[in-house]
Amino acid sequence: MSHVPSHSRNPRIEALRLVAIAGIALFHTFQPWFSAATDGSWAAGPLITWALGCVSLLGAYGNHVFFLISGLFLVPRAAQASTTAGYWPDQVRKTGRRALTILASVALYALVALAVSTWVVPVEGVSLHEAGWLVGGLEFVWLYLVFVALVPLVGWTWRCMRRPHAAVFVLVSMAFALNAYIAFLSPGEVDRGLLEWRKLMSAASYLVAFLVGGVLGETQSRRPARALAACAAVAVVVEGAAAFMGSSDVLVALSFKSTSALSFALAVLSVAYAARSADAATAPASTPTNHAAALTCRAAPCVLGFYLAQSIFSPLWRPLADALTQAAAAGGDVALLVAGTAFSLALLAVMLLTDALVRLPLLRWLGLA
């Protein structure tokens, strides 16, 4: 039986957003260590390599989760509304509002970054004379903007097709067949141009995730918890096998940017599990569970702000992360993991709180939140 997710916030979905952004924070903190462990520049042991291999899955996982959740809500609603009168004007209005929210958010963080770089401390790459920090550096945000703009067309096409779910399955199969070729056989150069075909496959992979989110919004998995646990176990075992066998190339391929099929599968099953309990937050207001749900729903809208801040201000926080983890590494692998995790979560908390105090009030003042 098909269903369309409720307009009210689902605490489990919002919690998953926070889990995803925490995964991205961890991924970026440990990314240099994973690269060093797999390119031979650091003689890492199999246990720490195994742990870093699992962490390396989190970057693509988090991004896929965000696009899946967006598709989960936006696609079914647009498809359902496409049979009503005034569909296009209504969708244009809603799409314009969503686009303005994204653009206003980028503009705010860009202005803050320029002010900080001019009057507080220089931020490398942040300048009116450079565009990389706002173009390639924020490619995830621009992809999200493009997908939001496509929602009216996607919803209309979705409703016109006899079997949209089957079409999405075909797209998934094609995309990840190409992704497997890229990851294991033809990774290309480390730095890709925006129009290089492997780079475009990253965008295609996230578009596929967005469409799969639409499928999840209209169906319910029978046993998502078991499937998720099984997939997570497979990911851990496969990463461990590659680490203990010393197969660095396999480790890299398993988590190769957005092409990672493991990350995608984990993301799909995570969203399916969270979406299955759409009415989970029905506890009385006085219970601890309800208070935690309320806090989660307050924090989750700040994830866009965290992504913007983490990307734009990476020249400031990256040296701190590297210095802290390098100092911790002298105490052993466990110390490295603990220090990197603590730094990642602290950075996440500070940026989420800042966003809640600055960007969200501004958006409300502008009538965009």
Rank of each mutant, 00 (worst) to 15 (best):
R223K: 10
G62N: 02
P361D: 11
S82M: 04
W158D: 06
C160G: 13
L103D: 03
A275V: 06
R17T: 03
C160S: 09
G96Q: 14
R198L: 00
Y61Q: 08
K94L: 10
A330F: 03
F67V: 03
L360D: 13
P319G: 07
A346H: 06
V271C: 00
A107F: 05
V123P: 03
L266Q: 10
L352E: 15
S70W: 01
A283C: 03
V170H: 01
L352I: 04
A104I: 01
S221R: 13
R276P: 04
S202F: 13
L320W: 07
S105K: 08
F27Y: 10
N179A: 11
A60Q: 05
Y273S: 14
M174S: 02
R98L: 08
L324H: 06
L171V: 10
A25S: 04
M201R: 01
A227V: 10
V172Q: 07
A281R: 08
P11Y: 07
A339G: 13
I182A: 11
V154T: 07
W158M: 00
D39G: 08
F30R: 03
M161N: 04
A15M: 12
D333P: 05
L207A: 02
L114Q: 03
G193S: 09
F73A: 02
T289V: 14
L114C: 01
F264N: 01
Q31Y: 05
P46S: 15
A242T: 13
L352H: 02
A346L: 08
L103Y: 09
A241Q: 13
L207N: 06
A329R: 01
A229I: 10
A229N: 02
V303R: 06
Y273W: 15
G240V: 14
A272E: 02
A278K: 14
A78D: 07
G59V: 01
I21N: 11
P32G: 03
S247T: 15
R318C: 12
V338S: 09
S35A: 10
Y206Q: 10
A235I: 06
R77P: 12
Q80E: 13
T101I: 12
S255G: 09
C54V: 15
H7T: 13
A242S: 15
L269V: 10
D279I: 10
A60V: 13
G214H: 00
W156H: 00
A328W: 00
A149N: 00
A329P: 00
S127C: 07
F210S: 00
